[in-house]
Design a protein around this nucleic acid. Sequence first.
DNA 1: GCCAAATATTGAACGTGTTCAACAAAAGAA
DNA 2: TTCTTTTGTTGAACACGTTCAATATTTGGC
Lengths: 214, 214
Amino acid sequence: MSDDQQATHGTWRERQKQQTRQIILEAAKELFETLGYGKTTIRAVAKYAGVGVGTVMSHFKDKASLLSAALMGDWEQLLAQVAATTPPEADYRTQLLHAAKIFFEYYARRPSLSRNLLKEALFSLEVQGPELRAMDQAAREIGVRALRAAQERGEIRADVDCEVMHLALFGEYCFVCIIGLGQPKPDPDQMVAMLESVTDLIVRGASPAPPDQR
Amino acid sequence: MSDDQQATHGTWRERQKQQTRQIILEAAKELFETLGYGKTTIRAVAKYAGVGVGTVMSHFKDKASLLSAALMGDWEQLLAQVAATTPPEADYRTQLLHAAKIFFEYYARRPSLSRNLLKEALFSLEVQGPELRAMDQAAREIGVRALRAAQERGEIRADVDCEVMHLALFGEYCFVCIIGLGQPKPDPDQMVAMLESVTDLIVRGASPAPPDQR
DNA sequence: GCCAAATATTGAACGTGTTCAACAAAAGAA
DNA sequence: TTCTTTTGTTGAACACGTTCAATATTTGGC
């Protein structure tokens, strides 16, 4: 339903606008992937899309927003892939590392774009566009839900606050991304290994064995 | 010795160069603190320092480098303050939070500059100037040393890798900085609280109580 | 003191992201 | 239809970071 709704929604004018938006997005994606973020200019995107420079800017707040919008499709695909391939029976540690691996491999395939998207995401947390905000929210909900499920399964002590734990794990994930994407040639395996080691540190603290003597 | 050495070292020309560098740095610091990072232009710094634009660029790779060089003094002062006020008897958790509080309070005092310095630091890890590289190295050494000391005191289990633990704590520290500085009005107390909660999660895993059943 | 090599300094020029007043085209009212 | 209002589109203009060929100054050898 949302397909038809989006395609034929509103007046002629609105549809036209959505179409130019789409054209711009496709041009942007093509150029970003070919040239990388830095070497892609707004002018080039505009020319490639066959519109004026101002049109691009009227559809997207700035270059970084254009990037995040252009990668939205990829992102949803990744989420779907994670949802489809995550073993439902596994413990949360395995699930986390599985999901992370999928993302890291994508990052390694598009280092320049990922780097800049990460930068945009991390440094606009409170001023960010709706796309990134939604992504952040989604990650939080999925993460916390998974942790609570694990908690009910007895993998996590009852006194552990799942929101805090998600924050901690998410923080480590971001940190690994920063370090990994800072490398000239990001190595997903190395990134997974790094995330694994710090996760294990946290896991032991979250595991049911009660640290009763201080 | 290093004082005199630096002040009277080399030829007349080298001293002259160091002096213009110093003048530029002071101008930059003044303008950065008054206007914030975004509203301070290189041209303005050059004019304020009474030199040409090219001179500024010949002394500093780019605007971000100028910022980090301008804040170097503050940074060293902070490190000294941390060294002077950290209770040597306290456990490492208390020491970490104490140091973090000092830094967070500084960040809150200069949100714009801190934000941009953090960005520069995190996204140039492999291409960064000598200052930031040295800072990173110093943080690592101090952190790992403190952790090993705590390990010998029995606060940390022997099987925990202090390098990994430092990585984890440092990652959480950076994450708290990102989140905290993303806020319109960074609140150091809130940041400390956040770091405290995630640190506690890690601490329990690192504490001697052996989680012997998986 | 004089000259050539070395180098610090300079600002005009360039490329790029972003803005904005003007324009064109559709929507809605008459 | 015709007029007014609304709004998507446009590219010239602007501001800023950055570059670089030209200039000014110092150095070191004679």
